[in-house]
Design a protein around this nucleic acid. Structure first.
Lengths: 221, 221, 221, 221
DNA sequence: AATGAATGAGAATTCATTCAT
DNA sequence: AATGAATGAATTCTCATTCAT
């Protein structure tokens, strides 16, 4: 039942009785992500989640008190995980171009940009209007990433002496662009792939900052 | 209990007994949209919807057979409504620049881009991975609009003799941009407004097609 | 499954679809009383109650919102029913002696003093410390009845010119006496019966107000 | 977390590891009494009880096998404790009047007649119809006490040469009176206090056996 | 002896759907 | 066509009990 395919918690988790509190929580959150991706926020049940995690029905309430809180913690986990990825990308050696490339690579990496995770992001975004706690968690991470991108674009503009009239506008486009491409990957997986998306981003950067970015080999499919 | 604030079905709808089949369906779909926006796809109930519509509990099953079908019809309704808006924008008198402007105005108009509707779009997108029917409805409308935009960008490039290396890339960015801005409006309404979003789009177009589009007055808040 | 053995709601209740809201509530409350008597407050389930009532599982939440509220309403029903019995007894034609006799007859009548109902009273009393709403409902009815008894004792004292030093003390004893005898009937049904209890009360009255009350034939078992 | 405020087990109990089997049982029973009073029989959980006792969740099953048995042992403990109090009162030096006074003082003493304990008595009485084991435990103690009271009343009658027609009747009243007053203290603590209750009992005795008992100073509040 | 994480049966509650009116 | 009381399957949540440590 190959669960827990991506993190380091794995080995410990399987010994039923031992796993520490934090481990169990992580295990359940991961099962939740998988289930939300597969069944959608509106139809997952506690039974789905605990079965996916290979644990008993009562365990969620033991560790999270309620389904609701589990979902909030799941979103928080995803936000933090994404935040760390952003942080790591921004810590890349080199100038703003290198950092921006790293950010792009991360945003469309197999880990971050898998359809499973995209589905979960959109699921939470879809509920964010009716659930203020979702909204504030989503807004936070979004705004943080946006701010960093704005700085990078300004540095790039100065760095390359492009003298663009409004580098901030390019930055804003960039930010929205990423999310829009995610949507395309999610709902039109036959039309849009991670590779195509990266090429679009790359082409966009090359058109603005030609001395920093090369055109992608081919934009065509 | 002023519901249904925006369409032309209104007057007929309120005379409880007379409303024709089609009217009832529209009335219920509108109530559904409102409820999904307010409560989220995962927690709306038939009782919520029928109460919002001012009708009896049993009526949904009478007109739509099941909740599930009502939701699908709701998405279909929204897709058609959006498709018609696109169609109308593309029918604008004038060249590709005028059409593109019309498209943009439409995408960020009060009617299309209200947070209620955005919430519903994202709600369906969030479920689209697990519900193939949602996905195909969403993909269809998205791809149609995208195709038109690609054509417009190509015409614009030729029209203004810009000789851009890859106008398709700009078109792809444009398409994703719109959706990304919708997300920002949905989850960070304090940071992103319809006006700001339009300015970002306008700035983007001006930077690519300067002979067709003016810079917006100000991008700053 | 002989339910509803004591009231007038019976005939209507059995036609599944027709029963009015108020009827359904009464039907469920009666089933609750029966179940509490048989299983105890701490182990009745909604399934017990609805099965006893011959109705479906969901119906309690439909009519009472929650189990908790059903129990409160049950106590309220019993309080009101008892209150009415008291009221009826006090309306008996004749002087204070006749009224007091009526009260006593009522308190130890088959209807009021059946072990089923006593069990329910004690069940609620037993929870009253931890459930303020129970306490206030119980206190209310108790205090009302007590007040009436005090008045009767004062009238009797004056009426018969007994010149007791403290008729109020006799009244207080009387009030507590009734409840204490109920306990004996409940927990020692072999030792204490309704008939014996009445004889004790009668003997007590005869010893205080000999010109108004006769001694019971025999106090012995 | 000052628990167990009233007995002599205390000092030993707090040294977690040392406590002997008997001590642990007493500690758990006291925690149970406190919890039943505070939360009611129908909603106490093992977690409540063990937390109150400052012990681990698993310990009840270790010492009592099951929750059910713990409750039975709790009732048994209370019955024995009360039985001993009765016994001690009856052992008072002096004649029947002194013994009866001692009994009354005990029944309305701070220790026996605290609302916490009354709540527990009523809780068990409330379940006694549906739980034969509770009933037999309750009946036993009740009948024992009653028998002693009957003897005392007979002795008093003879002793004072009152020549009452039916001293047994007075004894029966007395027994029920005590329990009825407990109920009043439980559910109408603002109306009935231990002091008032004693005054009522005292007044009752004075009216029957004026040469043995004085009237209380004042019956009024 | 003691602990407390884990279990899972059992309870309350929810809610789409049905159907008599 | 419309209503809304009733149903009962499905779901969440609770909690006594178990058992590895």
């Amino acid at each position: 039942m190959g669960r827990n395919t991506e993190k380091d918690t794995e080995s410990l988790v399987n010994s039923k009785r031992s796993a520490s509190k934090e481990m169990r929580r992580a295990q359940l959150i991961k099962a939740t992500i998988k289930c939300v991706a597969q069944k959608g926020l509106s139809s997952i049940t506690m039974a789905d989640i605990t079965k996916e995690a290979g644990l008993s029905l009562g365990i969620v309430n033991l560790h999270f008190q309620s389904k609701d809180k589990l979902l909030v913690e799941t979103l928080r986990y995803m936000s933090e995980e994404y935040g760390e990825s952003v942080h790591r990308a921004l810590a890349t050696e080199g100038g703003p171009a290198a950092k921006l490339t790293a950010l792009m690579e991360m945003d469309f990496s197999a880990k971050v940009c898998q359809r499973n995770k995209l589905a979960v992001w959109f699921a939470f975004w879809g509920e964010s209007k009716s659930r203020p706690i979702y909204q504030s968690l989503c807004a936070k991470i979004d705004e943080d990433a946006n701010a960093s991108v704005h700085t990078l674009f300004q540095q790039l503009d100065k760095d390359g002496d492009y003298q663009h009239i409004d580098p901030d506008n390019f930055a804003s486009v960039w930010n929205a662009l990423t999310e829009g491409l995610w949507l395309d990957i999610l709902i039109s997986p036959n039309e849009m792939t991670r590779e195509k998306a990266k090429a679009i981003c790359q082409g966009y950067l090359a058109s603005i900052f030609p001395r920093h970015f090369e055109r992608p080999r081919k934009t065509k499919n």
